[in-house]
Simulated assay, not measured.
Amino acid sequence: MLEVTALPLSELRLRTSEKWGEYPDDVLPLFVAETDFPLAPAVQEVLRRAVETGDTGYVSSRNPLAEAYAGFARRRFDWEVDPSRLRSTADVSMGIVEILRRVVQPGERVVVTPPVYPPFYDLVEEAGAEVERVPLRDTGTSWELDLDGIRAAFADGARAILLCNPHNPTGTVHERDALAALAELAAEFEVAVVSDEIHAPLAQPGTGFTPFLSVSDAARKTGYAVVSASKAFNLAGLKCALMVSADDETTAVLRGLPIEVVWRTGQLGLRAAVAAFSEESDAWLDGLLRTLDRNRVLLEDLLAAHLPGARYRIPDAGYLAWIDVSALDLGEAPARRILKDARVALNAGDAFGPEGEGHVRFNFGTSPEIITEAVERIAALVRR
């Protein structure tokens, strides 16, 4: 059984990406969605070979990316994807914008479900549309789509919904029945569903993951998915994502995108994604999921022991913890206070929408030692 363990702090400090380059060395960076693990061996090897041979030009129109993802979707999600219906681009955000530009007109409204990944608000505006907020429902034990609120938004003229599944920052994997109900609403009101499924490979086995396009004919008729290996395999800087359709009309939309949208795909990103989606990388991904499972439980235990006033639900997917710290008396901007006085960098909850006030997002895609030290630093601050 393959073990995936984080690199030591001394090696992580040598990285120059956003996570490790943004703050001084006395700060523990647990904010942006990067992980601290070595690359999967198959990914390392394909990148090494590309550099050795100078294979760093433009992406070829004849490449195995779509077939590689189709195989991955079949093995991991029991989802049959037609490779001919896929198109690549630089990243998930770009894919979202390019699709929205073609399914909504300037000034039309797009539903988002806060608290949600902060760039969603900007992506809707970049596409020329306006944001309509329909917050997730907090049941007391989980979060779920507010289908009544979404219906009301569609009935009032919203033309699309930007779905986050698995949801960032809560780690919620939306249930099949809820997705099917959303698809029926979208079909009824002739609304497009754009599903950001970047965290899908990180759904824990006990929870599973349901791709939106797999749930029904209505989902296939109304939906688009945007996927990538970037979050699970830590490849965001290499620039490669896939836009997925499952119906002739939606496929025509993707085929009608300017060729430059595809040409923005990074060559190294494409090669790394093919390796990540290959069967050779399945054991590594399984090992990563086991590590993240241990880390999400460790965080729960540490919070209970050191910060019992914090409220945290173990996420279904990913490595991002959504923590309510409003009872810890850290002021109106708890993430700022924690950074200043505990030297731990977390994401501020209110960036995800007003529903995030009093919350922080904590990245546990790292070592148990760093998670432990971060919680202990915050606890020492609270005691002071």
Rank of each mutant, 00 (worst) to 15 (best):
R159K: 14
E355S: 03
P114S: 13
P24E: 05
K340I: 04
S367M: 02
A180N: 15
A252K: 07
V110R: 05
T5S: 15
L86F: 02
H174I: 12
A225M: 14
V274E: 10
G349N: 06
M243Y: 00
S88P: 04
P106N: 13
A327P: 04
L182R: 03
L179F: 07
P368Q: 00
L328K: 06
E126F: 05
L12W: 07
E355C: 00
A203F: 09
A155C: 02
A305H: 10
Y121L: 11
D156N: 15
D25C: 04
D282S: 13
R102Y: 09
A283E: 15
A42T: 12
Q204P: 04
A276P: 00
M243E: 01
D301G: 12
G237N: 10
V325I: 01
S17A: 13
G107L: 15
E98A: 08
T141W: 14
A276H: 10
A68Y: 00
A272T: 15
L86G: 00
L147Q: 06
K340D: 11
W322P: 11
E11V: 09
I323Y: 03
G71F: 07
A155D: 08
A66L: 00
S60M: 01
E249T: 11
E130S: 13
W284T: 08
P166W: 07
E126Y: 01
D148W: 09
D341T: 02
Y121S: 14
R220D: 01
N168K: 03
L182P: 12
V43A: 10
S326P: 12
R49E: 14
G266D: 08
L162Y: 09
R384A: 13
V173S: 13
S281K: 09
R361C: 14
G149I: 08
A333Q: 11
D156G: 14
L9I: 03
R377L: 07
S281R: 11
D196C: 08
A90G: 11
P211R: 08
F37I: 10
G331Q: 11
K239P: 02
V274P: 04
A153P: 03
E130R: 15
E130K: 15
A6G: 08
G149C: 06
G237W: 01
A90F: 11
P106F: 10
P201I: 00
V92P: 05
H167N: 12
R383L: 02
A283W: 08
A181C: 08
R159P: 12
D36Q: 07
R294Y: 14
N347Q: 05
S93D: 13
P29Q: 06
V112D: 04
E126P: 08
N363R: 01
S60R: 02
P118R: 06
P106R: 14
V375W: 05
L242G: 02
F209T: 11
L254E: 03
L257Y: 13
D350A: 11
R220G: 04
R137H: 13
R87A: 06
D138L: 05
L238W: 05
A276E: 11
H174R: 07
P211G: 06
E369M: 05
L235K: 03
D196R: 14
S216N: 05
T53K: 15
R75P: 05
L47P: 14
N347G: 06
D91P: 00
T141K: 10
V244F: 02
E34V: 02
V193A: 09
E280I: 07
A70K: 01
L330E: 08
A379H: 03
Q44N: 12
N63P: 03
V274G: 09
P166T: 12
E184K: 13
W322V: 08
F77W: 14
N234L: 06
